[in-house]
């Protein structure tokens, strides 16, 4: 019984044949899973970015403002719209409760997106393609992005960031 003290010398009693077989199956399976992780990282080419820098929220704020001033092409619902050229550094700023600026990107061109927040944590979720990254104050998270479909995308905040969390919606145009 599992509620009684086991027989003396229980550690000398050999495993049952079925138990042994199962352990072998399980070990092989776990090795497979373990190998898959680095293997897919190297060969799959679909990894989350691991390029990031420390930055103060003030500096990130200023860099974003400068970026907006440089490439601004208009406004929508009071939010600046920018059209940066390909291969530039693009800044996306999360704050309670908006994503700034609205981006106009070109299909099949590559951009370096700098993602961060200037107050609390936010979640950067591109809808409808469903890609999700964390925007953390104090950290500049660099995502290398090459849009491959054109259209209109939304950025939904999916990290709880206060009572207005569900109103934090941004936009990306790809043409």
């Amino acid at each position: 019984m599992s509620i009684n003290v086991p027989e003396k010398y229980w550690w000398d009693i050999p495993l049952d044949q079925d138990e042994k077989t199962w352990i072998k199956v399980a070990i092989v399976w776990c090795i497979l899973l373990t190998v898959m992780m680095p293997w897919w990282h190297i060969s799959g080419n679909q990894n989350p970015s691991s390029e990031f820098y420390r930055i103060t929220t003030d500096n990130f704020d200023k860099l974003t403002d400068k970026f907006i001033a440089k490439y601004k092409v208009g406004e929508e619902e009071g939010i600046d719209v920018v059209a940066p050229p390909a291969n530039t550094d693009v800044f996306v700023r999360g704050s309670q409760w908006m994503w700034e600026p609205i981006l106009k990107l070109k299909k099949n061109q590559t951009y370096r997106i700098h993602l961060s927040s200037v107050d609390v944590n936010h979640g950067f979720s591109i809808v409808p393609i469903n890609m999700n990254f964390q925007a953390v104050p104090g950290w500049d998270y660099v995502l290398t992005l090459t849009p491959t479909t054109s259209g209109e995308f939304h950025i939904v905040c999916n990290e709880f960031c206060g009572i207005g969390h569900h109103t934090m919606i941004g936009k990306i145009y790809v043409e």
Partner: peptide, 20 residues
Amino acid sequence: GFGVPRRHWDITAADAVFQL
């Protein structure tokens, strides 16, 4: 699987600048 966020009061974003 469709990307619907957790901890989210309104996924239509009716009160936001853009709706979903």
